[in-house]
């Protein structure tokens, strides 16, 4: 009984679950061939939750994986084709938050913010969901288009944990897929949800932080209003406000240099892949 593979249907999809299984036939692993990508997918998550394993599963590449946090320090890129649409997927360094200053966190944060991916997949460890949700919530502050991939579900099962992905999806406002990427379980559903969010078939209503103290809430609201007035169409004004209040030098710089302006002018919907800013090399 325990060896039975549980093909959990995509959480919020109204479509029949069996279709997604059939959809694996729609996957073509493109390896490092990512020319003319229609959409860009970012792969974020805590260290050592299996981002590179997910990356390898969909691209057919063999990015080196290892059981230790901090393995991926640069960003690896690859491609896949799903249902006739070409995707470029970027494996970001694992980070516990997006609020601090080390180089690997900055690479991840800058890519999600300024690289404007069409979908950000946040990979989370099912056995450590609470800590992983910190990052999920931070990512949802930045972007509207996200899919949460609760990975290592096989390990969670081994520990006797069950994860209610429908409940989680309702709370977070974005699709949630349970996967065991090492075994390939759940990858078809993940691909389908990425596709639905990228093409706009699924519209995310991501949860925003609600628990902050009143004084903080007030300050964020004021600054957000001012930012929205100056930059109409800025997709993540609230997050920019949070960073400015935190005294983030990188954000102040983005404001001064006009980087934020470009972001605002691109508008909230990015559609086909935009040229990405080269933000990788920090000194």
């Amino acid at each position: 009984m325990t060896t039975e593979r549980i093909a959990s249907p995509p959480a919020v999809s109204p479509a029949c679950a069996t279709c997604s299984m059939a959809n694996l036939a729609n996957l073509r692993k493109l390896g490092i061939n990512m020319e003319d990508a229609d959409y860009v997918v970012a792969l974020a998550g805590n260290p050592n939750v299996g981002k590179s394993t997910v990356f390898n599963a969909v691209t057919g590449l063999r990015q080196h994986t290892g059981n230790w946090p901090g393995k991926t320090v640069g960003r690896a890129e690859g491609g896949f084709e799903y249902a006739g649409r070409r995707y470029k997927i970027v494996d970001l360094p694992g980070t516990y938050s997006l609020l601090s200053t080390s180089l690997d966190e900055e690479i991840a944060r800058n890519f999600i913010l300024f690289g404007r991916p069409d979908v950000t997949v946040v990979v989370a460890d099912a056995t450590r969901l609470e800590r992983n949700l910190n990052l999920v919530l931070q990512v949802l502050e930045i972007t509207d288009r996200a899919v949460v991939c609760v990975n290592l579900i096989d390990e969670a099962r081994r520990l006797g944990l069950t994860v209610d992905e429908r409940r989680l999806a309702r709370d977070l406002g974005v699709p949630v897929v349970l996967t065991a990427a090492r075994q390939g379980e759940g990858i078809p559903q993940l691909l389908q949800m990425i596709d639905e969010v990228a093409t706009g078939k699924f519209v995310c209503r991501p949860r925003r932080l609600q628990n902050e103290p009143p004084a903080l809430k007030q300050a964020v609201a004021t600054l957000t209003a001012q930012l929205t007035a100056a930059y109409p169409g800025l997709p993540n004004a609230r997050w920019v406000a949070l960073r400015l209040l935190d005294g983030d030098e990188r954000m102040v710089q983005a404001l001064r240099s006009g980087e934020l302006l470009e972001l605002a002018q691109a508008g909230p919907t990015s559609g086909p892949a935009q040229p990405m800013l080269q933000l990788e090399a920090a000194q």
Partner: peptide
């Protein structure tokens, strides 16, 4: 605004995040 909120901004924010994450995880994981 940063002066008004006070030095504990980062801690407040982190705390809000942690609380929220704990609540959500609590509901979803059995």
């Amino acid at each position: 605004l940063r002066w008004q909120v006070g030095g504990a901004f980062h801690e407040n924010l982190m705390e809000a995040l942690y609380t929220e994450a704990a609540q959500i995880a609590d509901r979803a994981v059995a």
